[in-house]
């Protein structure tokens, strides 16, 4: 009789322990499953580019790579700072700017169409010749590549600090552009498989 009771007691104890352990395992499993499902959500690869120059020979490669990456189904983000902002300009506005801001506006291209090459520009002769050669070879122009990248889903971000420093207003920038600072860039770059600087 004593033995029977002892056996029942031990059985109950074992069952309790087993249940406890099973529950712990179940929780762990659920946790892992949840983590897996969030991993699967981020299936797209990502590329982030930092564009600090405005010359054709820097910006065109950036946009060719942007369009190529978008064609591969990647998420594409381009962050424009310093001279790079000029690729996003639609026009130059002088009204309301101080003398230094007016001078820098005058010296920089007012839209991607009037952008020059970084070497052998020779007062514009070199750039004209390069543009002619590009046309003869049926290479896309910079404005076309920019429009195409937006069409392909690329995200273009203009650095607000640069805009503030140079006095560039949001009215001078094309409408399909986001504005942000270093935190936005770091967030995008930290999730990226590829980061490039131009």
């Amino acid at each position: 009789m004593e033995d029977q009771k002892l056996k029942e007691y031990i059985d109950a104890l074992v069952e309790e322990k087993v249940n406890e352990k099973t529950l712990a395992f179940q929780n762990q499993l659920e946790n892992i499953q949840q983590q897996l499902s969030t991993v699967q959500v981020r299936e797209n690869e990502k590329i982030t580019m930092l564009v600090t120059s405005f010359e054709l020979d820097k910006v065109i490669p950036a946009f060719i790579i942007a369009n190529g990456a978008a064609s591969f189904g990647m998420d594409v983000t381009l962050f424009f700072t310093l001279w790079g902002i000029n690729a996003l300009k639609e026009k130059s506005i002088y009204k309301g700017k101080n003398i230094k801001e007016k001078m820098i506006t005058m010296m920089l291209p007012s839209n991607p169409k009037s952008t020059t090459i970084s070497r052998l520009n020779m007062m514009g002769v070199g750039t004209s010749m390069m543009k002619m050669m590009m046309k003869e070879n049926n290479i896309e122009t910079l404005p076309d590549l920019i429009d195409l990248s937006i069409d392909m889903g690329a995200k273009l971000i203009a650095c607000q600090m640069t805009m503030g420093m140079m006095g560039i207003t949001t009215d001078e920038i094309r409408k399909d552009v986001d504005f942000g600072g270093v935190a936005l860039y770091i967030e995008e770059a930290s999730e990226s498989n590829i980061t490039l600087t131009f």
């Binding site: 060719i64 790579i65 369009n67 190529g68 978008a70 064609s71 591969f72 189904g73 070879n137 049926n138 290479i139 896309e140 195409l148 392909m152």
Partner: peptide, 11 residues
């Protein structure tokens, strides 16, 4: 030219 054929295919 590059990258247009790939872009067109993707589209």
């Amino acid at each position: 030219n590059c990258p247009m054929p790939i872009v067109r295919i993707a589209k």
